[in-house]
Design a protein around this nucleic acid. Structure first.
Length: 839
RNA sequence: GCGGGUGUGGCGGAAUGGUAGACGCCGGGGACUUAAAAUCCCCUGAGCUUUGCUCGUGCGGGUUCGAGUCCCGCCACCCGCACCA
C-alpha cells in the first residue's frame, strides 16, 4: 500500500459508482437468504437534505449494510412524500408550478443522498405526487369505500375570508390567517372521512404485541386511542327535552353541580336562536383556534342558558351552561360537571361561584375536608352520596350504571377518544379524491377504468382559493352512471394517506395494481422502521390503520406494518445572535469564527452571544448544509459524526470541533490500514481477544441501534491496534477493523479493502466470525468496599470462590486501615465483581 | 391544559442495583520541526490538612450492605395534541 493520504473527494464517488454499476443494493425477492426490510421514513422534498435526514438515513444504512454482511437479503428503499403545502406556498411566493418545484427538489435531494453513499435500492424509488403512485391510492380509496370505510360528513375548518381558503392549524396565528392577517372563521364543510374508529379496539390490542416498539410510543398511541368505559344517561331538562351526557365517573354523580354543553351542541344552538347574548357567546367560542391545546389552555368561559337539568337521584335542578371547554366530538358533547373531582369543572365552578361538593375522600372521616385549591381525581371512598356512601370508586361506578340501566335512563358505554380521520383537503397539490357529484345520482365513485384522476397541469396560484375549484374544465365531467352533467370532487387527500401505504409499494411496483400481494408477503412487515418521534402518533397510527384496513378487505395478509420501530432524536446546534433593540438577529455558523469561550462575527470581528443548543431551524439560522460538510470532510466523516457520541434516540448537537475529530479519525484509520505487515508473524493473545470481543460487541450494538457504543468500541480497538507490535494477530485486527467499519464508513472501508488486495467489494463481504472462547476473560478485577465505599481493588481468577475473595479482601492493607479494628459484621460477595465489608 | 420523554465533568455521553465519568470533543503540558500544520505521548469532576480523605449523577425525602439505576414528592427543558410533514 502506498503512503498516499485518503482523499474522500476521489474515493467517495469512485465507490458510489462501483456500487451503482454492480447493482450491489438491488433487493432480490427471489433470493433464498432470509429477508430483511429496513426502512426510514421517507422525506418531504423540501429542496435540500436536512442534517436530521442524514442522521436518520445513516442509522438505517448502517443496519442495512450490517444485515447484508450477516447473510440477509435486504430491502432498503427510498422515496418521496411529495405532496403537501410547501409546494403550493412556493407556487404562490415564487410563481413556480408545484410539480416542477417538487420534481426539481427531488432531483437535488437524490443527488445529495447519493453523495452520502447510502446502500439504497434506487430501482424502487417512488414519488407520491406521480400518477403511477396516487392513481393506485385512488383505487385503494375506492376499495375502502366499497367496504364501507369511507363516508362524508360535515366538519369544521379554519376559513380565511380574505384569501378564500382553508387554513391548516399552523397557518392560523393568534386566530388570524398567516398571510392575510384576517380573523379566521370556523366553517362547516362536507368532508371525506375514513372510519379508523372501526379499528379502534384492534389498533389498541395490537399494541400489546409490538414488542419491537418503544414503550413510550405504544403508551402514546394507547392514550390517543383513549378507550374509556363509563355511563351515558339523559337529564330531563326544564324545557321538556332530554339531554344525553357521557361521563367516565358515574361514581361522582352526587357531586354534579352543573351541566355543560359544547357551543355547537343542539341545545346551545337552540338557545342562541332566541337570545342575542347566547348567540354572541357561541360566536365568541367559534373564534380562536380549533386545536385541543388552544381549547384547553383558554380561560374557562360559560353562558348560563337559564335551562335546568333534573338530577336523576336527588331531583335537584342543576343549571345548564354553554361552555367553551366541552368538545362536541367527544362523547355526546354534553357533560355532568363534578367540580370537586375534575380540574376543568373545578376552574369553571370557581369562576362562576358554583358549589364544589366533595364526594370522594381518602377516608370516610375526611368526608368534609376542604379542597386545596384544585380538584382531586384520585382513588378513595365515596362520601356524601346517599346509597353510594362508603363504597369504593369502582363499586360505585358499577352501582350507578346498574341503577340507571334499571330505570331505563341510560346504559354503560365504551367511548373512544379516537375520532374518524378527516382526509379532505381543499388544496391542489394532493391526490384527487376519485368521486363525482351528480345532481341526479348523488355521489358516484370514479369507475376503476377511468383511474387515475390526474391533476390538471395548467393552474395558477395568483388568485386566492383552490385552483381545482376554479379550473375552467377539469371538474366538469359526465356522470359515470346517468351520463348527465356532473362535477368532480375538488378536495384532495391528506398527505398522511400517501404515507400510509408507501411501504407496501416498495415491496413491488406493478403497473396495473398498487402492489403484488405475494411480494408484500415476502418482505413485510418492515423489520426495522426508523424516524422521528414527532410521528409517534399520527403517521404511525394511520399506517397501522391502512394496513389493517387492506388486510380486512383481503388485499394483504399482514396487519402490522412495522415489526420494530426506532425513533431517533433531532440534530441540534448552538445559536449565535445579537440583540438589536427589541429584535434578536441570528447569524449562521458559517458567518462565525468559534473560539474556546466565545464566538466572533467574521464580518466585523465583534463578539456575538452563544445561545442555547436547539433544534436546527431556518429562523434561528443554526443550520448546517450536508453538501458543504461532505465537500469539506467526505461522506464517511459526516456519517461517523451522526453515529458518534449521542445515543441515537437523543438529540445530537452538531459541532465543528466534533466533525473535525471525526475527520481526523478517518485519516488515522487510513494510516493504520497501511500498516499491514506481510512479514509479521506470531500471536498477540491479548489483541486477538480484544478483536473478538469488539466484533461481538459491535454486532450487538448495531443490532440494538446503539451506534454510539459501537463507535466507542471501535475507538478502543483502534487504539489497542496502534499500540500493538506487528504480529499476525495485529494484521488480523486491522483487517477486522475494515470489516467492522464497512457499514459505518463504507467508502474508507472499500478503499482499504481494495488496497489490502482482498478482492471484490467489502459491501459484499461477510461480517467477521467470533470465536466464543475468546470472549471470556480469565482474570477479573474485584472491587473491595467498606461501608459501601470503594477502598481497594484486586485481581482474581474468574470464578474464584467466595471464601477466597473474602480472604483476599481482608488481607488488603488499605481495607485494614479503613476497618481500623472495627468488628466485621457481615461480608457481601458478588462473584467476579465485588466484596463489601459491613461493620 | 392533557399525554409522552429527558436531566451525569467545561461539552456529547458510558455504567445487568455492585469500582460513577468508558469513548469522543474542548483545554493544558511535552516530543518531532528552523518554524508552523499534521502526527505522537502524558494530564484533565470538585475540594482538602494530598502515602490519602471528603463531596459529587436536576432538587427534597425514602428503600438497601450498596442507588445514576428502585419508590414517593418537586423543578427545568423538549416532543405530540388530530389541516405541518
Amino acid at each position: 500500500m502506498s503512503g498516499q493520504a485518503f482523499d474522500p473527494s476521489q474515493a467517495d464517488g469512485r465507490w458510489q459508482r462501483a456500487w451503482d454499476e454492480a447493482q450491489t443494493f438491488a433487493a432480490n425477492s427471489n433470493s433464498a437468504k432470509p429477508k430483511s426490510y429496513v426502512l426510514e421514513m421517507f422525506p418531504y422534498p423540501s429542496g435540500r437534505i436536512h442534517i436530521g435526514h442524514v442522521r436518520n438515513y445513516t442509522m438505517g444504512d448502517v443496519l442495512a449494510r450490517y444485515k447484508r454482511m450477516t447473510g440477509h437479503e435486504v430491502l432498503h428503499p427510498m422515496g418521496w412524500d411529495a405532496f403537501g403545502m410547501p409546494a403550493e406556498n412556493a407556487a404562490m411566493e415564487k410563481g413556480v408550478h408545484p410539480g416542477g418545484w417538487t420534481r426539481e427538489n427531488i432531483a437535488n435531494m437524490k443527488a445529495q443522498l447519493k453523495r452520502l453513499g447510502f446502500a439504497l435500492d434506487w430501482s424502487r424509488e417512488l414519488a407520491t405526487c406521480e400518477p403511477d403512485y396516487y392513481g393506485h391510492e385512488q383505487a385503494l380509496f375506492l376499495k375502502l369505500y366499497e367496504a364501507g370505510l369511507v363516508y362524508r360528513k360535515q366538519a369544521e375548518v379554519n376559513w380565511d375570508p380574505v384569501d378564500m381558503t382553508v387554513l391548516a392549524n399552523e397557518q392560523v396565528i393568534d386566530g388570524k390567517g398567516w398571510r392575510s392577517g384576517a380573523e379566521v372563521q370556523k366553517r362547516k364543510l362536507n368532508q371525506w372521512f375514513l372510519k379508523i374508529t372501526d379499528f379502534a379496539e384492534d389498533l389498541l390490542e395490537g399494541l400489546g404485541a409490538l414488542e419491537g416498539w418503544p414503550d413510550k410510543v405504544r403508551l402514546m398511541q394507547e392514550n390517543w386511542i383513549g378507550k374509556s368505559t363509563g355511563l351515558e344517561f339523559s337529564f330531563d331538562l326544564s324545557n321538556g327535552d332530554k339531554l344525553p351526557v357521557y361521563t367516565t365517573r358515574p361514581d361522582t354523580i352526587f357531586g354534579a353541580s352543573f351541566v355543560a354543553v359544547a357551543a355547537d351542541h343542539p341545545v346551545a344552538q337552540a338557545v342562541a336562536a332566541h337570545s342575542d347574548e347566547a348567540k354572541a357567546f357561541v360566536e365568541l367560542c367559534k373564534k380562536g383556534g380549533t386545536t385541543a391545546a388552544e381549547l384547553e389552555t383558554a380561560e374557562k368561559l360559560g353562558f348560563d342558558t337559564g335551562i335546568t337539568a333534573k338530577h336523576p337521584f336527588t331531583g335537584a335542578e342543576l343549571p345548564v351552561f354553554i361552555a367553551n371547554f366541552v368538545l362536541m366530538d367527544y362523547g355526546t358533547g354534553a357533560i355532568m360537571a363534578v367540580p370537586g373531582h375534575d380540574q376543568r369543572d373545578f376552574e369553571f365552578a370557581t369562576k362562576y361561584g358554583l358549589p364544589i361538593p366533595r364526594v370522594v375522600a381518602a377516608t370516610i372521616e375526611e368526608a368534609d375536608k376542604p379542597f386545596a385549591g384544585e380538584a382531586e381525581n384520585g382513588d378513595g371512598v365515596i362520601v356524601n352520596s346517599d346509597f353510594l356512601t362508603g363504597m369504593s370508586v369502582d363499586d360505585a361506578k358499577a352501582e350507578v350504571i346498574r341503577r340507571i340501566e334499571a330505570e331505563g335512563r341510560g346504559s354503560g358505554k365504551t367511548v373512544w377518544r379516537l375520532r374518524d380521520w378527516g382526509v379532505s383537503r381543499q388544496r391542489y397539490w394532493g391526490t384527487p379524491i376519485p368521486f363525482i357529484h351528480c345532481e341526479a345520482c348523488g355521489v358516484v365513485p370514479v369507475p376503476e377504468d377511468q383511474l387515475p384522476v390526474t391533476l390538471p397541469e395548467d393552474v395558477d396560484f395568483k388568485t386566492p382559493g383552490n385552483p381545482l375549484l376554479r379550473h375552467p374544465t377539469w371538474k366538469h365531467v359526465d356522470c359515470p352512471e346517468c351520463g348527465g352533467k356532473a362535477e368532480r370532487e375538488t378536495d384532495t387527500l391528506d398527505t398522511f394517506v400517501d404515507s400510509s401505504w408507501y411501504f407496501l409499494r416498495f415491496a413491488s411496483q406493478p403497473g396495473d395494481k398498487p402492489f403484488d400481494a405475494a411480494e408484500v408477503a415476502k418482505w413485510l412487515p418492515v423489520e426495522q422502521y426508523i424516524g422521528g418521534i414527532e410521528h409517534a402518533i399520527l403517521h404511525l397510527l394511520y399506517a397501522r390503520f391502512w394496513t389493517r384496513a387492506l388486510a380486512h378487505i383481503g388485499m394483504i395478509e399482514v396487519k402490522e406494518p412495522f415489526a420494530s420501530l426506532f425513533t431517533q432524536g433531532m440534530v441540534t446546534h448552538e445559536t449565535y445572535s445579537r440583540r438589536d433593540g427589541e429584535r434578536v438577529v441570528y447569524y449562521a455558523p458559517e458567518e462565525i469564527s468559534r473560539e474556546a469561550e466565545r464566538a466572533l462575527l467574521t464580518a466585523d470581528g465583534g463578539e456575538v452571544e452563544i445561545g442555547r443548543v436547539v433544534k436546527m431551524s431556518k429562523s434561528k439560522k443554526n443550520v448546517v448544509d450536508p453538501d458543504t460538510i461532505i465537500a469539506k470532510y467526505g461522506a464517511d466523516a459526516v456519517r461517523w459524526f451522526m453515529l458518534s457520541d449521542s445515543p441515537p434516540e437523543r438529540d445530537l448537537p452538531w459541532s465543528e470541533a466534533g466533525i473535525e475529530g471525526c475527520s481526523r479519525f478517518v485519516h488515522r484509520l487510513w494510516r493504520l490500514f497501511g500498516q499491514l505487515d506481510a512479514q509479521a508473524n506470531g500471536e498477540d493473545k491479548a489483541l486477538t481477544r480484544k478483536t473478538h470481543q469488539t466484533i461481538a460487541a459491535v454486532g450487538d450494538d448495531v443490532t440494538a441501534l446503539a451506534f454510539n457504543k459501537g463507535v466507542a468500541r471501535i475507538y478502543e480497538l483502534t487504539s489497542a491496534v496502534e499500540k500493538a507490535q506487528p504480529s499476525a494477530s495485529r494484521n488480523e485486527a486491522i483487517r477486522t477493523l475494515a470489516l467492522l467499519l464497512a457499514p459505518m464508513m463504507p467508502h474508507l472501508a472499500e478503499e482499504a479493502w481494495h488496497a489490502m488486495d482482498e478482492g471484490g467489494l467489502i459491501a459484499d463481504a461477510a461480517w467477521p466470525a467470533v470465536d466464543p472462547a475468546l470472549l471470556v476473560e480469565d482474570e477479573v478485577t474485584i472491587a473491595i468496599q467498606h461501608k459501601g465505599k470503594l477502598r481497594d481493588t484486586l485481581t482474581a481468577p474468574k470464578g474464584a470462590a467466595k471464601e477466597l475473595l473474602e480472604e483476599m479482601a481482608l488481607a488488603s492493607e488499605k481495607v485494614q486501615r479503613s476497618l481500623d479494628g472495627a468488628p466485621v459484621r457481615k461480608i457481601i460477595v458478588v462473584p467476579d465483581r465485588l466484596v463489601n465489608i459491613v461493620t
